[in-house]
Amino acid sequence: MKNLFRPYLAFLLLGSLLFTTACKDDEEPEPDHEHELITNVTLRLVPTDTNKPTVTASWENLVGVGATATIDDLVLSANTTYTGSISFESEEEHGDHSHAHDLTKEIREEGDSHELFYRVTPEGLVTVTKTDVDENNRPIGLETTVTTNAAGTGVFRVVLKHQPGLKITSNDDNAKMNIGETDVDIEFPLTVQ
C-alpha cells in the first residue's frame, strides 16, 4: 500500500510545481523612469509682420520644486500673429560648471506621451493654436500660432503634461489638462500693447 502512494505523491508534487510556475508572471514590469527636472523654458514668438520684433521670454528654476524661479515678462504687439516655438532644458551641475541638456527633442519624440497646454487670462486677449501633432495625429504644442487682439494685460500660462498611455483625442483641453503628471506649470506676466 505504501508503494501506491509514492507515485501519486510524486505526481501531486510535480503538478503543484507546474501550477505555481505557470501562474508566475514571466515578464517583470518595467520600472517607471524618473523624469529629468526641467530647469529652463524658452518661449520664442516670431511675428508674421517682419516690421515687428521677435519676442523671447524665459523661465529658469535651477534650485528645484518650490524654489523661486526667474521669469521674463511676455510683451507682444496688439493685432499680430506669431509663429511660436517652445524649448525645454535640464541644467545639471558638474563640479564647478553646469551643463544644459536639451529636452525638447525627447518631448517631440515622445509626443504620444506629452502635450502642452496654453491658458491666457483674461480669455480672448491672446489665442494659441497648436500646430504640431504626434504619431496618432494628436496635438503636442511645441509649435504654435499665437494671435493677439487688442491691447491689455494678463497671464500667459504654459503647462507641460506627461501622459504615457493616457493621452486622449478630444477638443476639450480642460479635460485633457487634468490627465497625467504635470512636468512644468509656468505663468508668464503678459502685456499686449
Score class of each variant (00 low, 15 high):
L45D: 00
T50D: 12
L37R: 11
K105A: 15
E92D: 14
L45E: 00
L43E: 01
N51Y: 08
G95K: 15
T39V: 06
E106G: 04
K52C: 07
T48Q: 14
T50H: 11
L45H: 02
T20L: 11
P31L: 10
E27M: 09
I107T: 03
I86S: 01
L37C: 04
T21I: 15
T48D: 14
S98F: 06
L62C: 05
A57Y: 02
K105F: 11
I38D: 01
E36H: 13
A69L: 07
T50P: 09
N51F: 11
T83F: 06
A67Y: 12
L37N: 04
L18A: 14
T68P: 03
L17N: 04
D32T: 09
S58P: 06
G95D: 12
L76W: 01
G64Q: 11
L43D: 00
A57N: 02
T80F: 06
P47E: 04
D96F: 15
G15R: 05
P31A: 13
V46G: 01
E60H: 09
S16W: 12
S16K: 05
I107N: 00
L18F: 14
H35S: 12
D25P: 02
G84N: 00
L17A: 14
T81G: 01
T48N: 11
K105S: 13
V55Q: 11
A78V: 07
S98N: 09
E106T: 02
P31C: 04
D102H: 07
D102L: 06
T20N: 07
K24G: 08
I107K: 00
L17M: 12
H94Y: 15
L18I: 13
N79Y: 13
S90W: 05
G95F: 13
T83C: 04
P53L: 09
D49Y: 09
S85Y: 03
V46C: 03
S58L: 08
A22S: 11
R108L: 14
D26C: 06
E106P: 00
C23D: 05
R108I: 12
P31Y: 04
F88W: 03
S98Q: 08
D73K: 15
E89P: 03
V63I: 13
T70F: 09
L62Q: 08
H99A: 10
S98P: 03
L76I: 11
D96E: 14
A100N: 09
D49F: 06
L74C: 03
E92W: 05
E91G: 06
